[in-house]
Design a protein around this nucleic acid. Structure first.
Length: 808
RNA sequence: GCCGGUGUGGUGGAAUGGUAGACACAGGAGACUUAAAAUCUCCCGGUAGCAAUACUGUACCGGUUCGAGUCCGGUCACCGGCACCA
């Protein structure tokens, strides 16, 4: 019989869907649970991509193996279906986004099932489903009630031609992604979430989770905690100007100060600034520039001195000039900095350009050439009054103490992390469940009125003023205040795509609960997620946002763990042929459906795992897929030629046990490529030795997570299904016997003075003397040792012996 | 610029400090076949040699070690992220 993968895969996929062997049971507390999670996809019109198949297949393998090891496994799937592409498609084709989403989801589900993933389909979720987004809205209301959601005026990206607000992703090289026109900054009132209040916990709790290191590092850098000092400088106006610095030790070296163009002090001090026209012109120029331009043109420092005002250095009591310059950001620290040109490169450039004095206060560099920025022990303070002679490390606390004592400021921790802009002027998102009442202000919708459904609209286009399409629905917008009953207007902004994905892993635990987001019982059983795999591109947004929401839910008693994910791993990208990124425009996108049609899902699964180190980028090669197909052909042929005996054969014992050991540990370590390589070696060796059905049983058990369809078929063919039931229901993952993993003899390397001279065959665990004696018999060794004195031998059991010799 | 990662055959990639190149792809030779495909067997880093073999080889320079692709110091290249964060 031939290996007919199409028929086999269809047969078993249908049986799995019908018999549901992968359904997770929440109330089975007798078994240890394992919750494996992969990032749910955005159901795009293009359908599944081979890039999805990599992480999905890996987690499917892990979960299938865990099930076989007796765990109660939760491995769910869903769709993150709100978002722009669907909305844009709806606008263009005048189809309701819900319909587009429904069709795309159906396509995704079909493709996922065609790959044989062992998802628990009974728990499927969809963020656009009202029974789901009810709870997204509910979480938002809790955040609002705890004061963590607030309205603020924020600069947004505004396309001057399309007249719409763009997400950062839609701004390409400073222009609009769609029309290429100029994108400028425009102030708009937006809902914000106070993620910065959780900044410390988001950093500190990384200690307690098992994330790959680069994810932890990237999150720490993104949050960007820095410990510094807020310092008040006096001015000739008698008013104070507060700066933030991490280098208060350099206070004696401050020769000027700079405020950002948006700093409120400028307008406040307008009347005292004698060159207001020049200052005002600079302000306007800065406001016109987009963020992109401001950072692009950062090579050359610009600025204007504020004439008529001077600041006073509190340490030296000297008057120093005050500038406005766009190298200072309003969004970080206080929007004002003290200029220390001797020890900050940006300040050095600015001072050099404007001819300001540069004072050395830390000895060690050459400040005529560049700023000396070292912060460690090597620098010694000079020209700094009471700090002279101290190291920088000593000077920082000494200065802090002095500043505090003099009432000039205090210690302050700052973060690069900004609060989360939570409003979108879009249709296809969760409506924000708040109403604005003239009398009562913002009023949350009572929880029993959730979900607040997205109304039907005539057009999904944003308005000319950049308001959400919902704002045109006056019937919907005009409502009554839940508080006073008076006239009120609904919020017309919707939530960003990140909202629904910030808590979906909780919903899987209890997907059909209409009373609660998740029941206590289900949450306490399944939480936290044991293993979450996802893309590096989600490290600083999705992963951080969902950790934030989870911590908030912990604080209000909805969940019982501080962290949502115990372990996080990340996969590398799949590149197109030739190592270039796959993209629609290059036309090099590989569709898994095509590969399945030609080679089968099992081959697809094997190849995408065999292609290389899971964490690194890998290049797709349609040629190389054949290798995985040939392997499955060999497995099929081996099964057909297997002898009738249900005993394991003596000859195959070492390879069986070696492979059990290797595959078991490799799957746990996410080294799926070498796990497959060892299975290939096993099949090659079994083919050479001849295999019994007993040998095949072990092979099939080990192979089943990787290539479940062919294994299920062979399992049945060789009579195991009749005796033990389906492979999908097996709970006896093979266990190895260490003593059987090694053959009775081993090949050992022989070196003389570290140089390889040959190899010898020795019984396992031979003693050093025997090994040395045998090694001496090797011709090349004998030649190399001749006339020399043996001074030392290094014996590594079962591996090598190294003879160290010297001339006599 | 800063932070992280990676450099190994023609290619994808293996190697707890212990025989570099497992396992595959491509290529070559052969078997089977009328022929092709499929399958099976063998070869496959470089240089020299008919061969046995010798030398050499993991981006580059240096160090530690009996022994380094692996550890340490420095250099270069590429990839990803951040980017005037005071």
């Amino acid at each position: 019989m031939k290996y007919d993968f199409t028929a086999i895969e269809k047969k078993w996929q249908a049986k799995w869907l019908e018999e549901k062997p992968f359904t997770a049971v929440t109330d089975d507390k007798t078994r240890e649970k394992f919750y494996g999670l992969i990032e749910f996809p955005y159901p795009s019109a293009q359908g599944l991509h081979v890039g999805h198949a990599r992480p999905f297949t890996a987690m499917d393998i892990i979960c299938r193996k865990k099930r076989m090891q007796g765990y109660n496994v939760l491995f769910p799937m869903g769709y993150d279906a709100f978002g722009l592409p669907t909305e844009n498609f709806a606008i263009k084709n005048k189809i309701h986004p819900a319909k587009v989403t429904h069709d795309n989801v159906a396509n995704f589900r079909r493709q996922l099932q065609a790959l044989g993933y062992s998802f628990d389909w009974d728990r499927e979720v969809n963020t656009t489903d009202p029974s789901y987004y009810k709870w997204t809205q509910w979480i938002f209301l809790q955040l609002y009630k705890k004061g963590l959601a607030y309205k603020a005026s924020m600069p947004v990206n505004w396309c001057t031609s399309c007249k719409i607000v763009l997400a950062n992703e839609e701004v390409v090289d400073g222009g609009c992604e769609r029309c290429g026109s100029e994108v400028i900054r425009k102030e708009k009132s937006q809902w914000m979430l106070a993620i910065t209040k959780y900044a410390d916990r988001l950093i500190d709790d990384l200690e307690d989770v098992d994330y790959i290191n680069r994810v932890k590092i990237q999150q720490r850098n993104w949050i960007g905690r820095s410990e510094g000092t807020e310092l008040n400088f006096g001015t000739t106006l008698g008013e104070t100007l507060t700066v933030y610095t991490t280098r208060c030790d350099t206070l004696f070296g401050v020769t000027y100060m700079v405020v950002s163009p948006e700093h409120p002090c400028l307008d406040k001090w307008k009347d005292s600034i004698t060159n207001w026209e020049a200052v005002s012109a600079y302000k306007d120029e800065a406001a016109r520039k987009s963020d992109f331009e401001r950072s692009e043109l950062n090579k050359d420092k610009t600025g204007v001195r504020l004439e008529g005002i001077a600041a006073i250095n509190p340490a030296t009591k000297e008057q120093i000039p005050l500038f406005v310059s766009d190298y200072v950001l309003m969004s970080y620290g206080t929007g004002a900095v003290m200029g220390v040109p001797g020890h900050d490169q940006r300040d050095w450039e600015f001072a050099t350009k404007f001819g300001l004095p540069i004072i050395e206060v830390v000895k060690g560099g050459d400040i005529t050439k560049e700023a000396f920025t070292l912060k460690d022990d090597t620098g010694i303070m000079v020209n700094s009054g009471f700090l002279d002679g101290m190291t920088v490390k000593e000077a920082i606390p000494a200065m802090k103490e002095w500043v505090t004592k003099e009432g000039l400021g205090q210690s302050k921790t700052n973060y690069k992390l900004r609060d989360w802009v939570f409003s979108r002027q879009r249709y296809w998102g969760e409506p924000i469940p708040l109403v604005n009442c003239e009398k009562c202000g913002w009023v949350p919708l009572p929880e029993d009125q959730l979900p607040l459904l997205l109304p039907e609209v005539d057009s999904y286009e944003v308005t000319d003023t950049g308001e959400s399409p919902l704002s045109k629905m006056t019937d919907w917008v005009n409502t009554t205040c839940p508080c006073c009953g008076g006239p009120a207007k609904r919020e017309t902004d919707t939530m960003p795509q990140w909202a629904g994905s910030s808590w979906y892993f909780l919903r899987y635990m209890d997907a059909h609960n209409d009373k609660e987001l998740v029941s206590k019982e289900a949450e306490q059983y399944w939480g936290p997620v044991d293993w979450y795999n996802g893309g590096m591109e989600h490290t600083t947004l999705h992963l951080l946002y969902s950790r934030f929401w989870h911590k908030f839910l912990y604080d209000i008693g909805v969940v019982s763990t501080k962290e949502p994910y115990a372990k996080r791993t990340s996969h590398g990208m799949i590149l197109g042929e030739g190592g270039i990124k796959m993209s629609k425009s290059r036309g090099n996108v590989v569709n898994p459906t095509d590969v399945i049609a030609e080679y089968g899902a099992d081959t697809m699964r094997l190849y995408i795992m065999f292609v290389g180190d899971f964490e690194k980028a890998a290049t797709w090669s349609t040629e190389a897929v054949k290798g995985s197909k040939r392997f499955l052909d060999r497995v099929w042929n081996l099964a057909e030629s297997a002898s009738e005996s249900y005993e394991e054969s003596e000859a195959n014992q070492p390879i069986l046990h070696k492979t059990i050991k290797k595959v078991t540990s490799d799957v746990d370590d996410l080294k799926l490529n070498t796990a497959i390589a060892s299975l290939m070696t096993m099949v090659n060796e079994m083919a050479a030795n001849g295999a019994t059905r007993g040998d095949m049983r072990t092979l099939l058990l080990l192979l089943s997570p990787f290539a479940p369809h062919i294994v299920e078929e062979l399992w049945e063919m060789l009579g195991f299904a009749a005796k033990e039931g389906k492979m999908a229901c097996q709970t006896d993952w093979p266990v190895y016997d260490e003593s059987k993993t090694v053959a009775s003899t081993v090949e050992m390397a022989v070196q003389v003075n570290g140089k390889l001279k040959g190899s010898i065959k020795m019984p396992v665990d031979s003693a050093e003397e025997a090994v040395v004696a045998e090694a001496m018999k090797v011709e090349k060794v004998a030649k190399a040792v001749e006339g020399m004195k043996l001074v030392k031998t290094i014996h590594v059991k079962n591996r090598l012996v190294n003879l160290i010799v010297k001339p006599q």
